[in-house]
Design a protein around this nucleic acid. Structure first.
Lengths: 148, 148
DNA sequence: ATTATTATGATAATAATATTCATTTTCAAT
DNA sequence: ATTGAAAATGAATATTATTATCATAATAAT
């Protein structure tokens, strides 16, 4: 199961925090690491339950919170009051554009923006671990944002 | 009351949506436009109630949702499960850097980033109404992000 | 093996957000 | 000015995501 580099990062993180490694945690984390979208807790839970019927919601919840703290997952909230966790791809980060009318989500990458962010942060004495960039607007189909 | 440019933008927005202008809406919007921080609904409600005792929570809630849709307010969620609305200053937008250890928040502006965002959006056929950019990392004092 | 510490999972508590509905207000057309 | 359809209000209720509780089980170091 644990051929992921992320898995060992998690193990190391747990150790520094004095937390324990458990079968549930490992399984939930592994399941999450295999996703490639922003997944909600509910979705992740059902994915987990397919293989492991008796893992509870609370454990999924707590594990994802942990992953968020460790930097291995990013908690995001788009418009709908649902926290979604994003599994950041090894090859880098992507940002989002959300249509305010139809809720369509498009993704993009821009290395230049990333770079400018780091620079801006450095000026303020910060080191950036991760970031969220969300653009809100109207997609081609909904352009103008006219009356519904 | 309505010497704000924002007020007329709101009026125009309501018109295109076939919505009506009401005393409550105007008052809530005006009160909001006079704030200069990210304000929660609860805070805004109490501000509103000071002058206008019988405006209800639901109306504030609905009005802010409307302002969000119009681009006149930006809904933000930082760590605490509270949606806060940000009144964007006439002189432009500011973004946030949040320290993952001490929760300190610093703000910055970067025109170049804004520009790159619009370009990236345009490529995908989107028109940007507003955006959120949050950097997460460690401030000077917490640098390294060691064990808590 | 023992034991102290932490994790789990079912459930309950909390809190924010969204909806309902009867009443009132707006606004365009008379 | 009056009317009437459409929309807004506000109080209350419903919904839902998140967090906490607690008895039991698992972990890991000695």
């Amino acid at each position: 199961m644990a051929q992921h580099g992320k898995m060992s990062i998690l193990k190391a993180y747990l150790e520094t925090k004095g937390l324990k490694s458990t079968a549930q945690r490992d399984f939930i984390a592994d399941t999450f690491f295999k996703t490639n979208t922003h997944i909600s807790l509910e979705e992740l839970l059902s994915k987990v339950k397919r293989k492991n019927k008796n893992i509870g919601y609370a454990t999924v919840y707590r594990t994802m919170k942990l992953l968020g703290e460790s930097g291995l997952a990013i908690a995001r909230q788009f418009g709908d009051g649902q926290t979604r966790y994003e599994n950041l791809p090894e090859d880098g980060h992507h940002d989002h554009i959300i249509c305010m009318k139809c809720s369509k989500i498009a993704e993009f990458q821009n290395q230049k923006i990333e770079q400018l962010q780091s620079e801006a942060a450095k000026k303020l004495g910060f080191t950036v671990v991760n970031h969220k960039l969300e653009l809100y607007g109207y997609c081609a189909g909904c352009a103008g944002g006219d009356k519904a």
